[in-house]
Design a binder for these strands. Structure first.
Length: 263
DNA sequence: TGGGCATGCGCAA
DNA sequence: TGCGCCTGCCCAT
C-alpha cells in the first residue's frame, strides 16, 4: 500500500534493523541481478525520498527499490520460512529478515544515479514541511488540472491517489481546477495538511484523514469512517454523492458540491 | 479456476 | 492516451 508514508516507515524500520551491521542479500526469484555484488556488505543507512527507498551499501553501491502498485515487504524474525518463489530480494541479519515481492524496481545504482533520481523528484512534504515553495514553483509550469499535478512526482514527491483525493476535498478544490489557478496561500495550506497527515501515517501505518470528531463513533482509533471521498459513496459533510471518474488513467473522487468543478 | 482489481509508473504511438 | 508490467487476494462461477 505504497504512498510516501509507507516508504518512510520502511526506511525507518529497515534502518533500525540493518544499518551498521552486515546483511545477507539474496534474490530467490533471481531477478535482482545485483544481489550477489552487495551480499554480506555492511549497511551504511536506509532512506526514503518520495516513493523511492535507498539502501546505502557502501563502496558506491545503493539498492534502489520502488514498490509500484503491487510491491510489498514482509518481515520475519528468524528463523524465517523459506522464501516464496516470487521474492525478488531477501535481506537477512541475525535478528531480522525482510522479503520484497512485486516491486517495479529493485536494482543497484551509483551515488550519481541516486542524485539524478532525487533531483527529478519534487519536495517531499514528510521531510520538507517548511518548504512548499519549491512545489509551488513546479506547479506554475504545469498546464494540467490540480488533480493530475498532485500525482506528478516532479511537483511533489510521495503523494498517491488516496492523499490526492482527500487533500483536494479538505481544501475544496475540484481535481480539474487548472493547477495554475490555485492560489499560493491555498497551496501552502494544502502542503501543511499533507505534511500533518503523512507524518502521522509514518507512525500509525494508516491513512486517516477524518478527525475523530467527524468520524461518527467519536473514538480516536475506532472503526469509524477514515476517509472523506476516496472509495466513498456519500459526502461526509453534505451527504451528496461522491463522483468517481477516470482522470488520466487513475480514479478521481470528488464531492462536486463541496468541490465545485471549474466553469 | 478465472477474472477483476489495487495507494504506480514508463514507454510507445 | 493507452498499454504493459509487477503480485496477491477476493469474489463469482
Amino acid at each position: 500500500m505504497p504512498e510516501g508514508h509507507t516508504l518512510h516507515r520502511l526506511a525507518r524500520d529497515h534502518h533500525a534493523w540493518f544499518a551498521g551491521g552486515k546483511v545477507a542479500v539474496t534474490s530467490p526469484q533471481g531477478r535482482f541481478a545485483g544481489a550477489g555484488r552487495v551480499d554480506g556488505r555492511r549497511v551504511a543507512g536506509v532512506a526514503a525520498h518520495g516513493k523511492h527507498l535507498l539502501y546505502d551499501m557502501g563502496a558506491g553501491d545503493l539498492i534502489h527499490v520502488h514498490l509500484g502498485l503491487f510491491g510489498r515487504f514482509t518481515h520475519h524474525s528468524p528463523p524465517a520460512p523459506d522464501p516464496r518463489e516470487t521474492v525478488r530480494m531477501r535481506l537477512r541479519s541475525a535478528q531480522h529478515v525482510v522479503d520484497l515481492v512485486g516491486a517495479t524496481t529493485c536494482e543497484l545504482i551509483t551515488p550519481d544515479q541516486r542524485d539524478e533520481l532525487v533531483g527529478r523528484l519534487g519536495p517531499d512534504p514528510i521531510v520538507q514541511p517548511e518548504d512548499p515553495g519549491a512545489g509551488w514553483a513546479a506547479l506554475q509550469r504545469k498546464r494540467v488540472g490540480i488533480g493530475r499535478a498532485l500525482l506528478d512526482q516532479s511537483v511533489l514527491a510521495g503523494v498517491g491517489n488516496v492523499y490526492r483525493a482527500e487533500v483536494l476535498f479538505v481544501h475544496g478544490l475540484h481535481p480539474e481546477v487548472p493547477a495554475v489557478e490555485v492560489q499560493r496561500d491555498r497551496w501552502d495550506a494544502l502542503w501543511s495538511t499533507l505534511h500533518r497527515w503523512m507524518a502521522a501515517a509514518v507512525d500509525s501505518r494508516r491513512i486517516v484523514t477524518v478527525p475523530p470528531e467527524e468520524r461518527g463513533d467519536g473514538a480516536v482509533d475506532g472503526p469509524g469512517r477514515t476517509r472523506y471521498v476516496y472509495k466513498q459513496d456519500r459526502c461526509l459533510r453534505c451527504d451528496g454523492p461522491i463522483r468517481r471518474w477516470d482522470l488520466a488513467g487513475r480514479w478521481a473522487y470528488a464531492c462536486e458540491t463541496c468541490q465545485p468543478p471549474p466553469s
